[in-house]
Design a protein around this nucleic acid. Structure first.
Length: 106
DNA sequence: CTCGTGACTCCCG
DNA sequence: TCGGGAGCCACGA
């Protein structure tokens, strides 16, 4: 548990299996900072490509995509659908159904 | 080194 | 019920 926040975030996100998702706050919480949700988003921005992180499996607390339409929203939605995740009419998914219980992993 | 910003979340009015 | 403000920390310039 001596890893730094960034490293843990990367590890956690990379541990999310296909067809599952996690929220920023949850990842941050798992990494040690429940208030680090913003950093998770920033890390994703900075390291998603470098470390090949499944950024599309990370969404906000509402089970919705935080990205605006045309700003990556459609891309994330498509990637998630490819993994079997179904979106509701409001563009939200069932977190109860797809949320990755990473808590058990530890 | 310092400053600014951000794909969030929670609490209070 | 809904909106606004504050908190938090890392990364890039």
């Amino acid at each position: 548990m001596t890893e730094i926040f960034t490293t843990r975030v990367r590890d956690i996100i990379s541990s999310i299996p296909p067809g599952r998702v996690m929220t920023y706050g949850l990842v941050a919480s798992r990494a040690g900072n429940r208030s680090g949700a913003r950093q998770v988003a920033r890390i994703l921005h900075s390291s998603s490509e470098k470390y090949d992180l499944p950024w599309h499996r990370v969404m906000n607390r509402d089970g919705k995509i935080s990205l605006p339409r045309g700003g990556g929203y459609e891309q994330q939605k498509e990637l998630l659908e490819q993994e079997g995740i179904v979106f509701g009419g409001n563009g939200c998914i069932d977190l109860e159904e797809y949320l990755w219980p990473a808590n058990n992993c530890f």
